[in-house]
């Protein structure tokens, strides 16, 4: 898994790529939570995700819950087909704010 962060507008973009599984999701979780604890609005870019398991989804859920408690924005962007299937199957598309591009979040 690759994990990187960058700023765009008011958002910190955390980009996850490759396989986000039990082995790598702790790193994803660490990056997401660190940004939120620094009081940043966070978008997680999932465009490069080839596989995501429930531990990876749990990292996103934890990010969602923390953002909510801190009244910060949290969204998913560029969700890959592999990630989309998992999110839709569990109806997590009802939980997360999901948009195709970062611009859509910024313009919102």
């Amino acid at each position: 898994m690759e994990c990187s962060t960058r700023q765009e507008g008011k958002f910190m973009i955390v980009t996850l790529a490759g396989e986000v599984d039990l082995h790598y999701s702790p790193e994803a979780r660490k990056q997401i939570l660190a940004q939120l604890n620094d009081k940043n609005h966070v978008l997680v870019d999932l465009s490069g995700v080839e596989y995501i398991d429930s531990s990876g989804i749990a990292s996103l859920v934890e990010g969602f819950q923390l953002a909510r408690s801190k009244q910060l924005e949290f969204g998913l962007v560029g969700v890959s087909e592999a990630a989309r299937q998992v999110l839709e199957l569990a109806r997590l598309d009802k939980v997360f704010q999901i948009k195709a591009t970062i611009a859509e979040f910024i313009d919102h």
Binding site: A90, L92, V95
Partner: peptide, 11 residues
């Protein structure tokens, strides 16, 4: 009968 709602424990 697919999932109609999100998992429990989130919100």
């Amino acid at each position: 009968y697919p999932s109609s709602d999100q998992p429990i424990g989130i919100l």
